[in-house]
């Protein structure tokens, strides 16, 4: 997955400025940065929930030019390759956990319902929620809901799963159960792109870190380099030290 020269403005605010970055497959890329830095917009652009005004986007064999009109076929193709997990889960409240998971496979991929159901149970088992298949989202804890959302995106067999602050709405102990699922996925070489505030988790899971500030990429490199740079680069240093106070939470996986 590659982005080249991405630009996006909201009014006079340049949210993304000439973003060029490579997001490798079978790896875990963590995008960090202060609030309002444009990191969520960047992530949402990968699923075409946001449309930058210009720039090139390449994912697998698809090439998107944001300065041209994007056809609905292209949109669908990109969305099949990129699953999205939202901060506030966005499960469908009128559907059971199982129905949430099979909705995409049956309606979009036109899979056979029985086959989709069978696979949905396997995915729910994987995120530890097989027994909640017939529950409604409203009967789940936040951590459970987010794990269902991860199962829902996995059911589409996307090449990349994009996670937008997946644990920011969760209490620490619920956060841990979601992070464990993500760590398992990372170990299985599922390509993940995660926007998070949790630097401890980033350090533990990321093979690559992208640091975004004011719509620009300030750092793009390995996790090791990023944390080593905290002395050398004042912006990274400031960011890490501001996060370290708010970022320490009980139950957060640490090295």
């Amino acid at each position: 997955m590659q982005l080249q020269g991405l630009n996006k403005t909201f009014g006079s605010n340049r949210v993304l400025q000439d973003i060029t970055v490579e997001l490798p497959e079978k790896a875990t890329t963590v995008i960090v940065g202060p609030s309002g830095s444009g990191k969520s917009t960047l992530l949402r652009s990968l699923n075409l929930l946001e449309r930058p005004e210009s720039g090139l986007y390449q994912v697998a064999d698809l090439n998107i030019d944001f300065s041209k009109k994007i056809s609905s076929k292209q949109v669908l193709d990109v969305r099949k390759k990129t699953g999205m997990v939202f901060q506030d889960y966005n499960l469908f409240p009128h559907k059971t956990v199982l129905q949430n998971v099979i909705e995409g496979p049956v309606q979009v991929l036109k899979q056979d319902k029985n086959a989709a159901t069978k696979e949905a149970y396997e995915l729910l088992d994987k995120v530890g929620l097989k027994e909640k298949a017939d529950f409604y989202p409203d009967q789940l804890s936040g951590g459970q809901a987010q794990r269902v959302a991860i199962a829902r995106s996995l059911a589409m067999h996307p090449e990349y799963i994009l996670l937008d602050e997946p644990t920011s709405a969760l209490d620490p102990e619920l956060e841990a159960e979601v992070l464990k699922v993500l760590a398992d996925l990372a170990n299985e070489k599922q390509s993940l792109i995660i926007v998070t505030h949790n630097l401890f988790f980033a350090r533990q899971i990321a093979s690559k870190i992208v640091f975004v500030e004011d719509g620009q990429i300030i750092f793009d490199g390995s996790s090791q380099e990023f944390f080593d740079q905290r002395q050398g680069n004042p912006r990274i240093h400031d960011f890490i030290s501001s996060m370290s106070f708010t970022g320490i939470k009980e139950g957060t996986p640490q090295e």
Partner: peptide
């Protein structure tokens, strides 16, 4: 968010 979640899994506006 419901619209976004549905379109993120590739559902059309009609669906």
């Amino acid at each position: 968010g419901q619209w976004e979640a549905a379109s993120s899994i590739g559902m059309t506006r009609g669906q």
